[in-house]
């Protein structure tokens, strides 16, 4: 993101003194310092969602765990990103995500380039303790260019936020609640029938799993590029697409 001033808010993350920008999130400050906090729904360039809960951290003098993505730095804030119980929570949350959908890596377009798969490895999830839910969900292949496979959706809403906030189309949103929560295009019609879709493909670029993919990709062939959105929104903030000469 474009920054006019230097970071001037001192915070302590895992014992490291870090200078953060005012209004910066703990997650972003930690990233700049090279301190890795696991996350799934956070997506630079879009609004904070705070739903996956993988990035929860311990903040001194707060009695509750705070999501690093949605917690703004405060001077001299002390943050711990790793502890035995945080590790346990993150591992179990990852297991819950795997148990909730039908994540069959062996037959997935994103096998090998999937953020959920990476998280499982990072968090040491070598098996899933809770029962697999085996939900019955059907694939939407109605769009000429892309497919949506809800079996692989983790409800991170990256696509929802990107489409609404960056592309400005708001094709995607959520319907239902609890375990019935699901992604819908427009008013619940097939994606190919959703008139507001501009075919821009940003939702596909930001999907962390194989839920949104290009048509024609076989197992392990899909590559996403979530950094696209950060690029687009910072370019917009910096006025990259404005003809500055003409403005003068």
């Amino acid at each position: 993101m474009a920054r006019r001033q230097r970071p001037n808010v001192p915070v302590v993350i895992d014992g490291h003194e870090v200078m953060a920008y005012p209004d910066e999130s703990v997650l972003s400050a930690a990233d700049r310092e090279g301190i890795r906090i696991p996350r799934l729904c956070a997506l630079e360039g879009t609004s904070v969602h705070g739903g996956c809960r993988l990035c929860v951290v311990e903040v001194a003098e707060r009695h509750k765990l705070m999501p690093a993505c949605g917690t703004t730095v405060v001077e001299d804030m002390e943050v711990r990103t790793r502890s035995r119980s945080l590790d346990e929570h993150r591992k179990l949350i990852c297991e819950l995500l795997l148990a909730e959908g039908n994540h069959v890596c062996a037959v997935c377009v994103s096998n090998g380039a999937c953020e959920l798969q990476d998280l499982a490895e990072e968090l040491g999830v070598d098996h899933v303790r809770p029962d697999y839910q085996f939900p019955r969900r059907s694939v939407d292949a109605s769009h000429p260019k892309y497919t949506f496979d809800p079996n692989r959706c983790v409800l991170c809403t990256r696509c929802v936020r990107t489409c609404a906030e960056v592309e400005g189309a708001h094709v995607w949103d959520l319907a239902g609640r609890a375990s019935g929560s699901h992604l819908i295009a427009d008013l619940g019609q097939e994606w190919g029938e959703a008139p507001s879709c501009t075919w821009c493909g940003k939702c596909v670029a930001v999907c962390p799993t194989g839920a949104l993919a290009w048509k024609g990709k076989a197992v392990g062939e899909m590559r996403h590029d979530p950094s696209l959105v950060a690029f687009l929104s910072s370019a917009r903030e910096q006025g990259e697409w404005v003809d500055r000469e003409a403005l003068r």
Partner: peptide, 22 residues
Amino acid sequence: SQDESCGKCTPCRVGTLEMHRL
């Protein structure tokens, strides 16, 4: 609780469902 979870966050959406199963 598992029926009334809004579904936004993982622990409540899936965790309560799994707790109910157990």
